[in-house]
Measured scan of single mutants.
Amino acid sequence: MTFKLIINGKTLKGETTTEAVDAATAEKVLKQYANDNGIDGEWTYDDATKTFTVTE
């Protein structure tokens, strides 16, 4: 399955996707991606669209 991350950061905005077997696995990968890029904020997840959003 494809999961999307929408980034609403102070210095970085955009989106990325990852392939994962489930939402929990995708969340780990996407949170690591955000952490690697210095993004720390509030996370939400929409199961209907398989989209995570992080807002700083």
Rank of each mutant, 00 (worst) to 15 (best):
M1K: 11
M1V: 12
M1A: 11
M1T: 14
T2S: 08
T2I: 15
F3K: 01
F3Y: 14
F3S: 00
F3E: 00
K4M: 08
K4C: 06
K4D: 02
K4S: 06
K4A: 05
L5D: 01
L5P: 01
L5W: 03
L5C: 05
L5T: 01
I6T: 05
I6A: 04
I6N: 04
I7S: 03
N8R: 11
G9I: 14
G9Q: 06
G9N: 06
G9A: 09
G9Y: 09
K10Y: 11
K10M: 13
K10E: 08
T11P: 04
L12G: 10
L12I: 14
L12D: 06
L12P: 05
L12F: 15
K13F: 10
K13H: 11
K13M: 11
G14S: 13
G14Y: 15
G14C: 14
G14T: 14
G14L: 15
G14D: 09
G14V: 15
E15D: 06
E15F: 14
E15Q: 10
T16M: 14
T17K: 09
T17E: 10
T17M: 10
T17V: 09
T17C: 10
T17R: 09
T18P: 01
T18A: 10
T18N: 03
T18G: 03
E19G: 06
E19A: 08
E19T: 14
A20I: 03
A20R: 03
A20G: 04
A20L: 03
V21E: 11
V21P: 14
V21T: 12
D22Q: 03
D22L: 04
D22P: 01
D22M: 03
A23K: 14
A23W: 13
A24F: 12
A24P: 09
A24Y: 11
A24M: 10
T25D: 08
T25P: 02
T25F: 08
T25S: 12
T25R: 08
A26Q: 00
A26E: 00
A26W: 02
A26D: 00
A26C: 02
A26F: 01
E27N: 05
E27P: 00
E27L: 15
E27W: 15
E27D: 04
K28T: 10
K28N: 07
V29K: 10
V29Q: 13
V29G: 04
V29I: 15
V29T: 10
V29R: 11
L30C: 03
L30R: 00
L30D: 00
L30E: 00
K31H: 08
K31D: 02
K31Y: 06
K31W: 08
Q32P: 02
Q32C: 06
Q32K: 13
Y33R: 04
Y33Q: 03
Y33C: 04
A34Y: 02
A34V: 06
A34E: 00
A34G: 03
N35S: 14
D36V: 09
D36A: 12
D36K: 09
D36T: 08
D36N: 10
D36G: 05
N37V: 14
N37F: 14
N37G: 04
N37K: 13
N37H: 15
N37M: 15
G38R: 06
G38M: 07
I39K: 02
I39E: 02
D40F: 15
D40W: 14
D40N: 14
D40R: 14
D40V: 15
G41V: 02
G41R: 01
G41E: 01
G41T: 01
E42V: 15
E42L: 14
E42Q: 11
E42S: 11
W43V: 02
W43M: 04
W43I: 03
T44P: 00
T44A: 10
T44C: 07
Y45D: 01
Y45S: 01
Y45K: 01
Y45Q: 01
D46A: 04
D47S: 12
D47C: 06
D47V: 11
D47L: 07
A48C: 07
A48Y: 10
A48D: 12
A48V: 12
A48H: 11
A48F: 11
T49L: 08
T49M: 07
T49A: 08
K50M: 09
K50G: 05
K50P: 00
K50F: 11
K50H: 13
T51Y: 03
T51A: 05
T51W: 02
T51G: 02
T51D: 01
F52L: 02
F52T: 00
F52P: 00
F52D: 00
F52K: 00
F52Y: 06
T53Q: 06
T53L: 05
T53P: 00
T53S: 06
T53R: 06
T53M: 09
V54T: 03
V54H: 01
V54S: 02
V54A: 03
V54K: 01
V54W: 02
T55A: 05
T55S: 08
E56D: 09
E56F: 11
E56M: 11
